[in-house]
Amino acid sequence: MQNSHSGVNQLGGVFVNGRPLPDSTRQKIVELAHSGARPCDISRILQVSNGCVSKILGRYYETGSIRPRAIGGSKPRVATPEVVSKIAQYKRECPSIFAWEIRDRLLSEGVCTNDNIPSVSSINRVLRNLASEKQQMGADGMYDKLRMLNGQTGSWGTRPGWYPGTSVPGQPTQDGCQQQEGGGENTNSISSNGEDSDEAQMRLQLKRKLQRNRTSFTQEQIEALEKEFERTHYPDVFARERLAAKIDLPEARIQVWFSNRRAKWRREEKLRNQRRQASNTPSHIPISSSFSTSVYQPIPQPTTPVSSFTSGSMLGRTDTALTNTYSALPPMPSFTMANNLPMQPPVPSQTSSYSCMLPTSPSVNGRSYDTYTPPHMQTHMNSQPMGTSGTTSTGLISPGVSVPVQVPGSEPDMSQYWPRLQ
């Protein structure tokens, strides 16, 4: 039975679970980093996980050691009161100082060594604690504590007292930064006198190289990059290397530039699409467009005044059976039934097929058609009795279509119309 579990990581490298990497692998990681390889490249070359490479390099940059820390136990506290007071002093002298600059000053002034120097995250935590204590304490208590930490007896009751030896409130920041720059020169002199001055200088240079600022491109470089971006948004590694040799930039910087440029292009394309949609959409909808001609068919113009009344309900007709019959029939052209047409008796099958359309009241044959006459024609229609054979009435077949029909004066039988409509 094995005491430890061995495995293979996602890159194909072998590791022992819970145990640190061998010293030979750690040394190779540092050597590759000094030669300029990126952590992701080191991870692929040595088949070590990216997190492990970053952790080893980060500890090497901070402490200069590649040895693993002790497994188990607690780390001794490195942010001692003396170190905290120095950090507060540096922050007062130059409020814009960075944590890694404070760390360098602690090393250069001999406050800490490589073994007990606090990390950048520890210094940031100390600065946050100082800021929170400043908010919790009152103004007087804060000034007393700062005077105690600074070891001075001057008056701290006013704002300019934060910067000793100065009279203009805006000047101390520059003086403090100048003092810090002077301390940086002392850093070089002190570290050069040490035993491991060369190694420390190499480590600091490598650290500065990794902690780079934003790349500033010249106009020629920007023009070359934009020209390549117009050709393709995704250049391959050969195109990037050719462009890197042409404009004297690292291939990694060119790759990052193209990634950022593609993101910018997507944002601009989104804005262009929004403007295009806004320009195509009308600002207001016309009133006429809300009524579609496919839904509402136009009603033909009436030929006679009587045809303006298109349904039985508008003429005072309360018989719903006839109203439904007229509205359900398709529109037909106007025609006239003459008196000489043969009077065919209704076929029983045809009569039964339209039995649902006729009223059940037996008085329908005896009703006159003056009910369908509009009010303004009552006088004219009353002067001509319906009993004469020459009287013409208008029957409504569908809305908007008038059918003048000659009705025999002897017997106005409704059943004569249905064979004609089939």
Rank of each mutant, 00 (worst) to 15 (best):
E82V: 07
K91H: 03
L11P: 02
N9W: 01
N114T: 09
G72T: 00
G141Q: 11
L106I: 07
A99H: 04
E133C: 14
S24A: 11
V126L: 15
Q136Y: 13
I42C: 03
L130M: 09
R125L: 00
L149A: 08
C52P: 03
G73D: 01
T80Y: 06
I123R: 04
K91W: 00
Q135N: 10
G138C: 14
R67V: 13
Y61G: 06
E93I: 09
L149V: 10
G51E: 01
N114G: 09
E109Q: 12
K134M: 09
M142N: 09
Q10I: 09
R26I: 01
K86T: 13
N150P: 13
Q27T: 07
G64W: 03
S54R: 15
N9V: 01
V111P: 10
L130P: 15
Q47W: 05
N3Y: 12
F98E: 02
M142Q: 10
V48N: 02
Q136M: 11
H5G: 10
V84T: 12
V30D: 03
L149R: 06
N124F: 04
H34M: 07
K91E: 05
D144F: 11
G138L: 12
D23M: 05
P76S: 06
D104F: 07
C52E: 02
N150V: 05
I123M: 04
N116R: 04
V84K: 11
C112L: 10
G18W: 01
L57K: 03
D41G: 06
R128G: 07
A131F: 12
P22E: 04
Q27C: 07
K91M: 00
I42V: 11
D104Q: 12
Q136L: 10
I45A: 14
G73V: 00
N3P: 12
M148A: 07
I45C: 13
R92H: 13
R59F: 04
I102Y: 06
R19C: 07
I102L: 10
L127D: 03
G110P: 07
C40R: 07
S96R: 12
R147V: 09
I66Y: 08
L106C: 15
L146H: 07
N150R: 12
S35Q: 11
E133N: 13
G18M: 00
V120F: 00
S43C: 05
V16R: 06
L32F: 15
S108P: 04
R128N: 03
Q2N: 08
V120N: 09
I87V: 08
A139I: 06
V111K: 13
C94R: 05
H34W: 12
G12D: 03
A33R: 07
Q89M: 08
Q27M: 08
H34D: 14
R128L: 04
N114F: 12
K55T: 04
N116A: 12
R105V: 13
A131E: 15
V53L: 00
R103E: 05
K28Y: 06
I97S: 09
Q2C: 09
A79L: 07
R38L: 05
L149E: 07
P118R: 02
S6M: 06
L21S: 04
P20S: 05
I97C: 07
L107H: 06
S4C: 13
G138N: 08
R38T: 05
I56H: 03
M148N: 15
V53P: 03
C52G: 13
L130V: 15
V111W: 14
G138W: 14
N114D: 14
S24G: 14
A33M: 10
K75E: 04
Q27I: 09
L146T: 07
R92I: 12
G64N: 05
P68W: 03
P20L: 01
R26S: 01
L46V: 14
S121I: 02
I97W: 11
G64K: 13
E62P: 00
Q135C: 14
R44V: 08
I29Y: 02
P20K: 02
V111S: 12
S108D: 13
S96P: 15
C40W: 03
T63Q: 04
S43H: 03
N3T: 10
M142S: 11
R77W: 09
E133G: 11
C52Y: 02
E133Y: 13
G64I: 02
P95T: 11
L21N: 01
T113N: 10
R19W: 04
A33N: 15
R67P: 01
I123E: 00
L149K: 15
S132N: 12
I45K: 13
G110R: 13
S54I: 15
L149W: 10
V30A: 15
Q89R: 08
P76E: 02
L127T: 12
A70G: 06
I66N: 05
K86I: 13
L146A: 08
S54W: 02
E82Y: 06
Y90I: 05
T63N: 08
H34A: 15
Q27P: 02
S65Q: 14
I29F: 03
N150G: 08
C40F: 05
V53E: 00
R26L: 02
P22K: 12
P39W: 04
E82D: 14
Q2L: 10
S54A: 15
R105W: 14
D115C: 13
D115Y: 11
Q135S: 12
T80P: 08
A99T: 06
I71D: 02
K91L: 01
I87R: 01
I66F: 13
A33G: 10
S49Y: 01
Q89K: 14
V48D: 02
M137E: 15
V84D: 01
N17L: 00
N150Y: 09
S6V: 05
H5C: 10
K91Q: 04
A70E: 07
H5M: 13
Q135R: 10
V120L: 05
A70S: 10
S49C: 02
P20F: 01
P20N: 03
E31S: 11
V14M: 09
R67L: 11
G51V: 02
V16I: 07
G51M: 00
A70H: 11
Q136S: 11
M137Y: 09
R147C: 10
R19K: 15
K55L: 01
N50A: 06
T113I: 09
G141K: 15
L21Q: 05
R67D: 07
V83S: 09
N116H: 10
P39H: 09
M137A: 09
F15D: 02
